[in-house]
Nucleic acid binder design. Structure first.
Lengths: 121, 121
DNA sequence: GAAAGTGGTTTCCTTTAGGATACCATTAAA
DNA sequence: TTTAATGGTATCCTAAAGGAAACCACTTTC
């Protein structure tokens, strides 16, 4: 029983590691945008609607630290910076797909229960 | 291109729906605990180490609203209340498993890069 | 020479998440 | 009669997340 408990805490920690990387208001949208291909800072800021420069730069830095996104500075004038998903970053796809499927189904479920309230979300 | 964009926003919304349900400091631990079987309020508070009554009650209410957890009041004296995962709640298992696998692998990866820092996390 | 675009950082502010403590009613045991 | 256990709620407080605006250096265009 104690072994089960210890094991279990490790698993919960693992789940939270993943959750920490994916949660926050913008990370998924950024990863989603980069899923279509390489993007520059300004392109991301336009595609991820509503994000400010501060948050974008912070989120990108975190994704870069976790080796999910690669940042490349090009020697142009003025400098351009490219962001792309790393191969490792692409390994998130399975889990993101699962979340997408579950979330879409959940919304349908809620809509069929009480459509009016659900529309407000 | 616009259609792609609209579709994409729906998908991102779906992912965030899922994320909203799973994120927060305690939900995963609660679901994990209930994964072993029915639990009473006090049992949960003991098993989910560190959680206070206010947070536990709030998180349980949210899980109940989303039909992931069922709350049953038993007519004993004093009243006992049982919480259990619904069938729908169990459908989260796939996605939680994916997150667990990814998180465990991610930790190994970080450990092999820079074991000393990683231990601190 | 001014404006606009490149990719940001810094500062300050508001909003939200979470925690500590006290409290509630009920009942059984000591 | 006090204590402990049941399952919570209400209030207040802190910490963290996030947003707005100003600012930076550099270069091209108007």
């Amino acid at each position: 029983m104690e072994k089960v408990h210890t094991e279990c805490k490790g698993k919960i920690r693992a789940i939270h590691d993943t959750l920490d990387i994916l949660s926050g208001k913008w990370k998924i949208a950024i990863i989603g945008s980069l899923g279509f291909g390489t993007r520059r800072f300004m392109e991301l800021q336009r595609e991820v609607e509503g994000i400010g420069a501060k948050m974008l730069s912070k989120e990108l830095r975190e994704l870069e630290i976790n080796d999910l996104v690669k940042r490349t500075v090009l020697d142009t004038k003025p400098v351009t910076v490219e962001y792309q998903l790393t191969e490792y970053g692409k390994t998130l796809q399975d889990i993101i797909d699962e979340m997408m499927k579950w979330g879409e189904n959940h919304r349908k479920r809620i809509m069929s229960e009480s459509p009016k309230e659900a529309e407000l979300i």
